[in-house]
């Protein structure tokens, strides 16, 4: 019985992230539009876009290969599995021990590898430019993420997100220099990984500086819908990671009862709303960078993560 309940809660989390992801995207766009004194599309627009894309036929480039047709599903699956393993409203879910934070990072890496490959599949110059730049960014963002994981893991004594969240909740962690460094680093990585301003502009099309959009340029119809959903999931996932490590309050613990879960879900929605608002606010107040300034920006995150780890190697009390 307990097992079934656990499985139901795990399934609820998987469904929850899937359903909330487009909403978060719509909400962020709305806030951004309001900050720019535009009215903006309705919050539910991303759902409508997905449905519309699903209804359309796929226009496939003549020389697209089997990889091009199967990759969207693999990108989606890897991102979804990663998102399902991050505590959103409760810690210690039934399968939370399957993969730790390092494995979640690597799962996102798998998704990105497929995305970069399909960018090159049709053999257009736009696709190649997108893949090449995406891999450059990831070559610095991924080690930065690993160093941030090191920092957090050294404080919590664990790389399991559930355990980290529990430690941050209960133990006397307090304000630490290394945590601050990790937070700033993680935000930089999250901006880059989700192709947000100042690294990439999610609203561009037909621009030489685009990265994510360039890779998926040849996609249409249901394939594009799946990729867009995966991108939305990734944004949700990063906000969930930040929330789970740095503001874990309200998270229900394992077997906390329905009331605790309800509190968890409400606070999670609140965290998403705040996170989405801050993202939109940040994006409207900063300009996009030149492509070759991005490595310096990401290098900052790498250095912050490295510094945090080094401080903790020197003394556990930093």
């Amino acid at each position: 019985m307990a097992l079934i309940l656990d499985l139901i809660i795990q399934g609820a989390q998987m469904l929850l992230v899937l359903l909330l992801a487009p909403l978060l995207l719509g909400y962020t766009r709305k806030v951004k539009a309001r900050l720019l004194r535009r009215r903006g599309p309705p919050i539910l627009q991303p759902y409508r876009d997905l449905i519309r894309l699903c209804r359309k036929e796929v226009v496939l480039a003549e020389n697209a290969s089997w990889l091009f047709r199967s990759a969207p599903y693999m990108i989606f699956a890897a991102t979804w599995v990663a998102a399902a393993l991050v505590p959103t409203f409760a810690t210690g879910l039934h399968f939370s021990w399957t993969a730790d934070l390092i494995a979640i990072t690597a799962l996102l890496g798998s998704a990105r590898l497929f995305l970069a490959l399909v960018g090159m599949d049709v053999g257009t110059s736009f696709g190649g430019i997108g893949s090449s730049r995406e891999m450059l960014f990831s070559s610095i963002a991924e080690p930065a993420m690993i160093m941030i994981v090191f920092t957090v893991a050294l404080i919590a004594g664990s790389t399991q997100l559930s355990t980290i969240a529990d430690t941050m909740l209960t133990a006397d962690v307090g304000l630490r220099v290394s945590l601050g460094l990790a937070l700033v680093g993680l935000i930089i990585v999250a901006l880059a990984e989700n192709a947000r301003i100042p690294v990439d502009n999610p609203a561009t099309h037909l621009e030489l500086t685009m990265v994510h959009e360039a890779m998926v340029l040849e996609y249409s119809g249901r394939h594009l819908a799946v990729i867009e959903l995966a991108a939305a999931l990734k944004l949700l996932l990063y906000i969930s990671i930040v929330a789970c490590i740095f503001v874990p309050w309200g998270l229900a613990s394992n077997g906390g009862g329905l009331a605790a879960y309800a509190v968890g879900i409400v606070t999670y929605l609140g965290k998403l709303a705040v996170g989405g608002f801050l993202l939109a606010f940040f994006e409207t107040s900063i300009a996009k960078m030149r492509v070759f300034r991005v490595p310096e920006f990401l290098g900052t995150a790498l250095m912050l993560g490295f510094l945090g780890t080094l401080l903790l190697f020197v003394s556990r009390s930093f």
């Binding site: 699903c54 796929v58 480039a61 599903y73 989606f76």
Partner: peptide, 20 residues
């Protein structure tokens, strides 16, 4: 994902020159 997409989404597919 494949099952849901293939059941509920359009299954039409057209080959065309690359968009680029």
């Amino acid at each position: 994902a494949v099952e849901v997409i293939h059941r509920y989404a359009s299954r039409d597919l057209r080959r065309a020159p690359a968009w680029d």
